[in-house]
Amino acid sequence: MGATILVADDEPFILRSLSFVLRKEGHEVLEARDGAEALSVARTGRPRIVFLDVMMPMLNGYEVLERIRKEPDLAGVHVILLTAKGQEADRQRGLDSGADEYLTKPFSPSRITERVREILSGESACQAC
């Protein structure tokens, strides 16, 4: 039932809260604190879902996402961008980079777990996130 999920954010508390709720749901959570780490963990851990913060050191979220999309081994991975920048231009850029979803901080942990359940059960992407 549990899936492998990568959570990448340079904010340790956000990492902590996401990991906590996803583990409570029975998922295996991989953590990364910058873009480069996120990419390497994604390559080795083969997550089903990736939560990717946009503003990260080394590589930002967009750059990590573009590279993930170029990796054949990572095809089909569901990527959700997390951003504290809520402007429309940022959102558009995220979707252009190949994100499946775009989530603006602050978010609700229960909403996150709910989305993960929906994605895993094969439902279509949420339009109102």
Binding site: E11, I14, A84, K85, P106, P109, S110
Partner: peptide, 21 residues
């Protein structure tokens, strides 16, 4: 906006977690 939203995210997340768990 970014700097405000970041701590707010933690506050919101952990208070919700505390309430639900």
């Amino acid at each position: 906006s970014h700097e405000l939203r970041t701590p707010l995210t933690s506050i919101r997340s952990f208070s919700e977690i505390l309430l639900e768990h």
